[in-house]
Design a protein around this nucleic acid. Structure first.
Lengths: 152, 152
DNA sequence: GTTGAAAGGTTATTACG
DNA sequence: CGTAATAACCTTTCAAC
């Protein structure tokens, strides 16, 4: 996939607002709407744009707690690692999941309604799982999310 | 803000695809397009929908490295903490930033083109900052991002 | 005040030069 | 690649509840 500055500009615009109109984008890169359309098509098909999604406010949805949890598994066996990954991926309270180089280590971002609800999560997700050797929780106080800077 | 099951369904749809048409949403909740429109309006105005954005593929944009970095500051002075937060928020390579309860501790998700580029980032961001007492880097091997499960 | 059906306007898409 | 025609969509109005 070959990309030029115009493509990057489109990505930057869409990253800030997925509802930016094609006309507006066309104006930004001084091109026709058809050109923008074709660019978007290939950006989507090539997977550079993974998805266009609504970002929701967790607090306003009743998830007052965010936690960063680092997890260590009992053994570094691939099937166990994959099983754990799968479990995390499917869980509605796990919003992000990172697999760390080196050991059987993971970092996950978990949301919960309150502390009691987080407790319940740990029982369900960690204590009930024989593969989990240990886990360490850090409660998040505030979050800032930046957007990816593109080399325009 | 009062929300019912239909609102949650709309959020769930938009979380998966921000380009879902109003007609399609109306079909899902068995309502008119005008009703969906009114619901979306208040969901946006109340901030439950924070933004609608394109999610980009970092690897395909040339950012091959993702790192989780935990950072400890020299002192817990509020102005220093805020200055650091601000710096992180504005930095194009810092995609996520979490402020941890307790001490002057942070966790950030950082992207870089390659290891050398990450080195440069650490020099710029950590070594050049007298407030940073220490930082610890974990390189991310794989990432899974789940969506928030809504109680439908 | 809230709702849904339908009209009217805007935007996205496709076909063609 | 851009223009223009087509199609899809969004928005507003308005009447009924």
């Amino acid at each position: 996939m070959i990309m030029d500055i115009s493509d990057l500009k489109l990505l930057s615009l869409l990253q800030q607002n997925a509802k930016t109109s094609i006309q507006e984008m066309a104006a930004h890169i001084s091109a026709s709407t058809a050109s923008v359309q074709r660019r978007l098509k290939s950006l989507r098909e090539s997977g550079v744009i993974k998805k266009e999604a609504a970002i929701l406010d967790q607090k306003k949805l009743g998830f007052g707690i965010t936690a960063i949890v680092s997890v260590e598994l009992e053994r570094d066996r691939l099937d166990q690692i994959n099983a754990f990954k799968q479990k995390a991926k499917q869980d509605g309270q796990v919003t992000n999941f990172y697999c760390i180089a080196g050991d059987a280590d993971f970092v996950m971002i978990v949301v919960a309604k309150d502390i009691a609800d987080y407790e319940k999560f740990t029982h369900r997700f960690f204590f009930a799982d024989k593969n989990v050797r240990k886990f360490r929780t850090s409660i998040v106080v505030s979050t800032e999310k930046a957007t990816l800077d593109l080399p325009l």
